[in-house]
Design a binder for these strands. Sequence first.
DNA 1: TCAAAAGTGTTAAATGTACACCCATGG
DNA 2: CCATGGGTGTACATTTAACACTTTTGA
Lengths: 249, 249
Amino acid sequence: MTNKSAAQPRRRASRAGLPPRMAVAVDLVILTLREDTLCALAIERGIAPFRGRWALPGGFVRAGESLEAAALRELEEETGVDAARAGHIEQLATFGDPQRDPRERVVSVAYLAIVPDLPEPRAGGDARDARVLPVATLLSGKVPLAFDHARILDAGVERARAKLEYSSLATHFCAESFTIHALRRVYEAVWGAPLDGPNFHRKVLNTPGFVVETDQMSSGGSGRPARLYRRGGAIQLQPPLLRAEPRAP
Amino acid sequence: MTNKSAAQPRRRASRAGLPPRMAVAVDLVILTLREDTLCALAIERGIAPFRGRWALPGGFVRAGESLEAAALRELEEETGVDAARAGHIEQLATFGDPQRDPRERVVSVAYLAIVPDLPEPRAGGDARDARVLPVATLLSGKVPLAFDHARILDAGVERARAKLEYSSLATHFCAESFTIHALRRVYEAVWGAPLDGPNFHRKVLNTPGFVVETDQMSSGGSGRPARLYRRGGAIQLQPPLLRAEPRAP
DNA sequence: TCAAAAGTGTTAAATGTACACCCATGG
DNA sequence: CCATGGGTGTACATTTAACACTTTTGA
């Protein structure tokens, strides 16, 4: 019916019904907050290709291993953070350009992980060095990333920005208990814009399931001690926290 | 861990540092509207495994072919709709459970396509039959889908529902020019809830870039002729069209 | 003239925004 | 007693939701 069957002597394997096999990898965008700055874990590659360049942590999926399991395994290998301590992990997108790896065809499934208080990473395996660097630095273009990792990182940051608005993702940047102020600093760091403190406070408390009060108070800092909260059960926020866009007068 | 690694000598390749190779497929959730009902294209499988069961259209990615190109090729093969006529196509998620295909390890990258006025599909290739069926039927469980395709379809429908709210996706269900009423019927079909006509009308017109007026009017139907509009340039809607949730009094 | 759909007006309620102001703590 | 951040109050602007009402067509 189409020209297809005629025009296709094309890859004998395919005609025989056997699909080509490809390597499948997972790459991780691991986000955390360091001094009110949005940061990601980056690896300095110790082997070719892109030796000496910064890259996202990742590795190949093993036979019999699910994609999610591979992502969690890589997360633990690179950071020492196990599934329980990881605040949040979700699949981001899949990158499969035929040229994205100069060695051979590699399809990479990217995952986004949020980790509170990411420990100083250990270089190991194929990595010459491993560091938690500001996202702004990594995306500035001054430190070109290996492969298509700049696009992957960008997708991860965009996903995080979008999800703060309508999900409880922000709480995963915080330790188990946190002040409303700390939560606000997460929003301000990820969105890169200041928010009104009083209104933010009310909005968070009026969003059912977002946070739950504890009977503890913060201590030590300057100023009045603040109440500590824990993550509530809500996954989606209704109504969403709006990303304030200053209105034109 | 599973009986699988025992059955295989665990691919010596993997121990030598060479990653295992896997087949990579694309599967398509192709949504359209038929008589105000959200429908998806389904294929009745003519070959094992799952012979005789309904499945989503899809196929293996070829060597040297990008994922997106594979998705567009499958879309055209199964529906005759080329990239230009497809309203919208986007990557949805990747499904890679080791057991999802009983033959061998297949990682499937799912795509979501929206096509206005999907033509009656032609069965061909490995398909015994091809039909446009209501999503509600396919997800009801009465017609079990092959592989993990119920999960994929569900993810596609959920993505479409969510994106109607904050993107101009709904316009891609419509022909090139359409009335505001037709656009509203898209929202009502996908969300499964009625919307207030007058308020919807204003909201659409007040959302910059959502639709642009033409100088033509609809003809033929009963009632007053309506103005026709085209898709505007906006991708994201600001403010979003809210999914009306009847308020508890 | 009636039914059906298009489109405009109107109003009460809910929400968002900006900022004044009091509270509790450490220096 | 002052700086710092925590938290509440409040007034105003904006948005939303509900629905009455007018317009324009085909039957």
